[in-house]
Computed example of a mutant assay.
Amino acid sequence: MPPFRISPMLVNADFSRPATVMADDYHWVTSPQPGVERVMLDRVGGEKARATSIVRYAPRSDFPEHFHPGGEEVFVLSGVFSENDKHYPAGYYLRNPPGSSHQPSSLEGAVIFVKLWQMQPEERVATRIDTRDPAFWVRSAGRDICLLFASAHEHVSLQRLPPGELVFQGCSGGAELLVIEGQVEAQGQTLDQGSWMRLPPGFDPALVSGAEGATLFIKTGHLCIPIEQTS
């Protein structure tokens, strides 16, 4: 059988425009490894791409060990995601810097949110945060915030919002969010759990948490950095 290849691909690749993928509209695509599927949220490139995806590991599935020249960012949504002999249940945030390598797998199955090739080349420190630990959370401006990563180029956090709360008080540098729990109301649309939205710099719609509040993975600042296409 010939090797698995993905031709250069563009998915939500115009970063000057908003992009939304609703949880009900997930389109699962097979990967090079049996038992591993993904939903492509945005993508610029082929198999080695600047990409944002939801990835689903079937029980007892894995990838061979490989490098991430542009780094990898992971948030575990369900199940248990493993790297070599380390195991990360739902709620873990992992950040593997450029040049790092790992052998990912899942014994019981897992769903993860993944961002590839989106880190600054000088980043060197791996991050592991268990967001289930209350020690990582602080109360600020009426919401609970778990800081995951901060630099001059980006800010990443998990935020718990009460009902009817504005998600952003201005996001001039662009923003990206994934609904972890609850709902977000966005200009006549309801973003349910699992829905994803990317907002370009200068685009600042009124996003409001739903009637039960919302827990959101939020990333800001990174969209001001020029997008590089990989092969």
Rank of each mutant, 00 (worst) to 15 (best):
L178P: 09
D130K: 01
E108M: 07
S61C: 09
A51T: 14
S172P: 03
Q33F: 08
K86M: 11
A51Y: 02
W28G: 02
T30E: 14
Q118P: 00
C171M: 05
C171T: 14
E123Q: 14
V184D: 10
H155N: 10
Q118M: 13
S157K: 12
T131C: 08
Y92F: 15
I112N: 01
L77A: 06
D62Q: 11
F203E: 13
A206N: 06
R38W: 08
G170Q: 04
D42F: 07
F136S: 07
W28F: 13
S31M: 10
L10V: 05
V11D: 00
K48H: 09
G70Q: 13
L41G: 02
D144N: 12
G182N: 08
C146V: 07
A186C: 14
R95D: 02
F203R: 09
R38A: 08
V21L: 07
L178M: 10
H102Q: 07
A206K: 11
V55A: 09
G79V: 00
P59D: 03
K48L: 14
E123V: 11
T127G: 01
D25W: 02
L77E: 02
I54D: 00
Q103M: 13
L223T: 06
G70R: 13
G202A: 06
D62R: 09
G202Q: 06
H153N: 13
V167A: 07
G173I: 03
V29M: 13
P8L: 04
P89N: 09
E228A: 09
F203L: 10
A150C: 05
P59M: 09
S195R: 10
R95N: 06
Q183D: 15
P121Q: 07
W196K: 04
C171G: 09
L191V: 04
W137C: 02
R60Y: 12
G188C: 11
M9E: 15
P18Y: 02
G35V: 06
I129K: 09
P18R: 11
V44T: 14
A150R: 14
A13P: 04
A58D: 05
E181C: 03
H68Y: 12
F136E: 07
G170R: 04
V21T: 15
R198T: 04
V138K: 15
S105I: 01
E73M: 03
S16G: 10
T215G: 06
Q189K: 15
G164M: 04
K115N: 05
Y26W: 15
F75E: 03
A90C: 11
F203K: 08
R50W: 13
T127N: 02
Y93C: 05
F217M: 08
K86Q: 14
Q187N: 11
L207V: 12
P8K: 08
E108I: 14
A19C: 02
N84A: 11
I129C: 08
S106Y: 06
G202P: 04
E228W: 11
R139V: 05
G174K: 02
V44G: 00
I145D: 11
L177S: 12
S31C: 07
T131P: 08
D144K: 12
